[in-house]
Amino acid sequence: MKSFASDNTSRVHPKIMESIVNANLDNAKSYGYDEYTLRAENKFKELFGEDIDVYFVYNGTAANVLGLSSMINTYNAIICSEWAHINTDECGAPEKNIGCKIISIPSSDGKIKTEDISKYLFAIGIEHHSQPKVISITQSTELGTVYTKEEIKDIADFAHKNNMYLHMDGARIANAACCLNLDVKEFTKDAGVDVLSFGGTKNGMMFGEAVLFFNKKLSEGFKYRRKQYMQLHSKMRYISVQFETLLSDELYIKNAKNANEMAKYLEVRLREIPNIAITQRVEANAIFASLPREVIDKLLEKYYFYIWNEDKNEVRWMTSFDTTKEEIDEFVEDIKKIIK
């Protein structure tokens, strides 16, 4: 069954799989004291500069929760979009593990603005209310849209002016970079992001994410926090070597570029079909569309994907580094056959 459900369902990129096999040819030091981890950290420093701290973890939920936990106390609050992964898809992990409150802001496109955030700052200094301390944004968003560099800088400046921090969930950070045609540093570190979850799993890796601290004072004690949260991989090299490979020869950009291009191609092909309405801007590697329910049900017999909104018959189709035009053409032709 072909999947358009998520870039999590894609294969591991062959070069990354090969790197894992090669890392398995001999012994190596454990807990990140190996040569692979050092090289992977240096790859990140080539991208973002030497003045950062880099930590590897297993998955995106851990990257987000651990990154946020370094910025916040239990009496604080995190402000994010209602669609944010930390609000909808992490099973309450931030609340349980950090013990803080999440304030979610309604959003039609997955993005939030300073004017949306400002109304939640009235309680600063009042002990009866959770104290807003972190703004968390997702790049690209859960609705497939992308923040511009200027939008991110505006939020970062607003956060810092109000004694807050800016966290970025970058599970699909490379897809955003391709959309913006910018170096990742320009719309993260240079724009004022304090802590970044840098995604690997959705972009060709088997497993592994990175937590990057641009505000290095926030990383104090993080290695102990990572251990307490059960995210210190003893055989760290199997995460690190994947990042080393992903960040070499711009593989992370090449992977994301194909995913984005295939989403755009799918959008073009879908617009040939009058019964389908594209419901969000196609900026990264996600297509949101509304179509008749009977068509959705028939498609689900052959393809794996998610119904996003039952009431609106809205679905989400995702493309990946390994999606091909031939697969999309077959998918679109199947839709046309069903609608006929």
Rank of each mutant, 00 (worst) to 15 (best):
K264C: 02
R237A: 04
S240E: 07
L182T: 04
H233C: 15
H233W: 08
K217P: 07
K217T: 15
E186Q: 13
M318F: 02
A210H: 03
A174M: 10
I273S: 10
G204F: 03
I296F: 00
A263I: 06
M236E: 12
T188G: 12
K202H: 10
K302A: 07
A210F: 09
A277I: 05
C179E: 06
A284R: 04
L291K: 01
C179S: 15
F207W: 04
P292C: 06
A176W: 05
K264L: 11
T245N: 04
D311M: 02
L212W: 13
R269F: 00
F207E: 09
E283G: 00
G199N: 09
Y303S: 01
Y252V: 10
E314V: 05
R269Y: 01
M262W: 10
N255G: 07
D190A: 00
F213Y: 14
N175S: 12
I278C: 08
L247W: 03
E272T: 15
E272V: 13
V195T: 13
I253F: 11
R293F: 10
I239P: 13
L232W: 08
V268I: 14
N203G: 08
N313I: 00
M318H: 01
Y252P: 13
K298F: 02
N203Q: 05
N258A: 02
N215K: 14
K302H: 11
R237H: 11
E261F: 01
N313Y: 03
E294M: 04
E250G: 02
Y303D: 02
Q228G: 05
N215I: 03
A177I: 01
V184W: 02
A277E: 15
D297Q: 12
Y304F: 14
Q231Y: 01
E220D: 08
V282C: 02
F222T: 09
M206G: 12
S197D: 14
A277K: 11
A263Y: 05
S240H: 04
K217W: 02
V184E: 11
N255M: 03
A259P: 07
Y238R: 03
I276L: 10
A289Y: 00
